[in-house]
C-alpha cells in the first residue's frame, strides 16, 4: 500500500496535502520517546529466536535502508538483541518472498512456492523460531513456505510482539504465536475464548 499510494499519487498527478509515511518509523520514534515502554525481559530466559523479513514495498521500493534500521531497532527492543538473527542478504538487498505483485492471487501456486524456496532457505539458515512479517502478503506467503518446506517456523506480525513485550497482548490476539508463547505475559487471561 505504501508503494501503491506514493507511486499512484506521482504517476497520476493526484493532488494531495498530506505526507505518506509508514508505521515502522513511528513505532521506532514512539519507543525512543518513551511512549511505548517496551522491553525484552519476557524473552531473557526463554531465548526464543526471531528473524525479520524486509517488505520490498516498504524498504527497497520506498524508504530504503533507514526504515530497515527502524524495523530492526523495534524488533531488537521487543525480543532482545541477542535473540534477533538477521537473514542474509538483508535490508534493501533482501529477497522478495514471492507473495507480492499479485503472485498470491495469480493462481500459479507451484511456481510461487518455487519462487519462495530462496526465502525459506534464508529463514532456515538463521535457525529462528519465528519470522516477523509486517506485510500481509509476506505473512501469508512465508506462512505457506514454512509449512510447504517443512521447517515449521512461526510467522508473526510486528504489532503482536510489541504488545507482547508491553504486557498487553490478550489471549485472543495470539493466533500466530505457537505453543511456546501462548501462555507468556498474557493480558487478561480470563477473557480467553
Amino acid at each position: 500500500m505504501t508503494f501503491s499510494v506514493l507511486a499512484g499519487l506521482k504517476k497520476f498527478n493526484i493532488p494531495h496535502k498530506f505526507v505518506v509515511k509508514n508505521i515502522y518509523e513511528y513505532y521506532a520514534k514512539w519507543i525512543r520517546e518513551g511512549k511505548l515502554k517496551v522491553n525484552s525481559d519476557w524473552n531473557k530466559d526463554l531465548k526464543v529466536k526471531f528473524t525479520v523479513q524486509d517488505p520490498c514495498q516498504i524498504v527497497r521500493k520506498t524508504y530504503g535502508d533507514p526504515i530497515a534500521e527502524d524495523l530492526r531497532f523495534v524488533v531488537k527492543s521487543v525480543v532482545g538483541e541477542e535473540n534477533f538473527i538477521d537473514m542474509q542478504p538483508n535490508r534493501s538487498n533482501n529477497y522478495c518472498c514471492g507473495g507480492g505483485g499479485g503472485f498470491l492471487q495469480s493462481g500459479y501456486k507451484e511456481q510461487r512456492l518455487a519462487y519462495g524456496r530462496l526465502k525459506d532457505a534464508q529463514i532456515q539458515a538463521t535457525g529462528a523460531d519465528y519470522c516477523i512479517a509486517g506485510c500481509h502478503n509476506c505473512h501469508a506467503q512465508i506462512h505457506e513456505l514454512s509449512e510447504h518446506y517443512g521447517k515449521g517456523y512461526g510467522v508473526v506480525h510486528l504489532w503482536t510482539l510489541i504488545c507482547l513485550s508491553l504486557g498487553i497482548l490478550g489471549p485472543n490476539e495470539r493466533a500466530y504465536l505457537h505453543d511456546d508463547l501462548k501462555e507468556v505475559n498474557v493480558f487478561h487471561p480470563e477473557t480467553e475464548m
Binding site: M1, T2, F18, V19, V20
Partner: peptide, 14 residues
Amino acid sequence: QADDLGCKTYLNTE
C-alpha cells in the same frame, strides 16, 4: 478522503 478530513499524515501499516 485523507485531504477532506484534513489529515497531515497518511499512515500505512504495510
